[in-house]
Amino acid sequence: MTDDQREAEWPVHDSTVTWETEYFDAGYDRVERPGGERANYYWLSPGDSVSIVAVHEGEVVMVEQYRPRQRERFRSCPVGAVDPGESFEEAGRRELREETGYRAAAVELLQRYYSEGWLRKERGVVFADGLTPGEQDTDEGEFVDVVTVPVEEAIETARGEPTNGWTLTPLLLAREEGLL
């Protein structure tokens, strides 16, 4: 079945934006289900983001920071927004440099995926190596500590509470690709 055929089975009769901010839009689509009934499907539409798995001298480069939305301190892979016109690889290289100071000689896109069913955004997972240490260049209001973890402890570290998908999923993908 093609995407056009699927969309014909689930026609969108109306799309409403109920809230707009500089970071995301929120709204809903009025969709007709295959049985004929109509329902609202709510969504958030932030920009795409990237998680970076970076390895330097047998250590995974991570960041540690307090996340006010979750009210938790996380140790995680560097993660950030993909700017308009930027590829996941370009964003990964830039975010790694800004958050950690490390510059990557090579980056490789491992995967693109939708992290949540109600989010209209993709997350890219980028692997970075050939790293050169440097100075952080964080955004205003970003308070990030750089930490490194031995490769063999990275997944165990990511599974420690609190656990998040912007770290565990990328590390598992990198391990599956034989990069960890």
Rank of each mutant, 00 (worst) to 15 (best):
L109Q: 09
P84I: 08
V61L: 02
I155M: 10
G35I: 06
L171H: 05
V17A: 11
H56K: 06
E95L: 12
E7R: 15
T163R: 12
L180N: 04
Y102T: 02
V147K: 00
L109M: 05
S87P: 04
Y28F: 15
E64F: 01
Q70V: 11
A39G: 09
D29N: 12
E95Q: 15
Y113R: 03
R69K: 11
T18C: 11
S45P: 00
E90I: 01
H13C: 07
E177D: 14
Y41D: 04
Q136K: 13
G124H: 02
E95V: 15
D3V: 15
R123T: 09
G178T: 11
R67L: 11
F127A: 06
A39F: 10
D129P: 01
G58R: 12
E32V: 08
R103G: 13
S49Q: 14
E99N: 07
Y41F: 14
S51E: 01
Y114Q: 14
F143D: 13
P170S: 11
G35Q: 12
V63T: 13
R94W: 07
M1N: 12
M1G: 15
E32P: 02
A91S: 13
I52W: 01
G47D: 10
V107L: 02
V50H: 01
T21H: 10
V61A: 01
W118L: 13
R73K: 13
A81T: 14
R73M: 05
G141M: 05
T169E: 13
A128N: 01
D14H: 12
V147T: 01
E116F: 12
D129Y: 02
G160P: 00
C77G: 06
S51M: 09
L168E: 04
G165F: 06
P162N: 12
A91V: 02
T16G: 01
G178L: 03
A106C: 04
E135M: 04
E116Q: 11
W118Q: 07
W19R: 14
G47P: 05
R33D: 15
P133H: 09
R6W: 07
E176V: 09
E176C: 11
A106R: 15
Q70H: 11
I155G: 04
A158Q: 02
T132H: 10
R30D: 11
S49P: 00
T16H: 07
D29L: 01
M1Q: 12
S15C: 13
T18D: 13
G47R: 14
V151C: 03
T100A: 07
D3F: 15
A91K: 03
G160K: 12
V60I: 08
D25S: 10
E37Y: 14
E122A: 10
F74Y: 12
H13V: 03
V50P: 00
G160E: 14
A8Y: 08
S76C: 08
Y28I: 09
Y23P: 03
R6H: 08
R30E: 12
E161G: 06
P46S: 12
P68Q: 09
R120V: 04
A105D: 15
K121L: 13
C77Y: 00
R73D: 08
E152A: 12
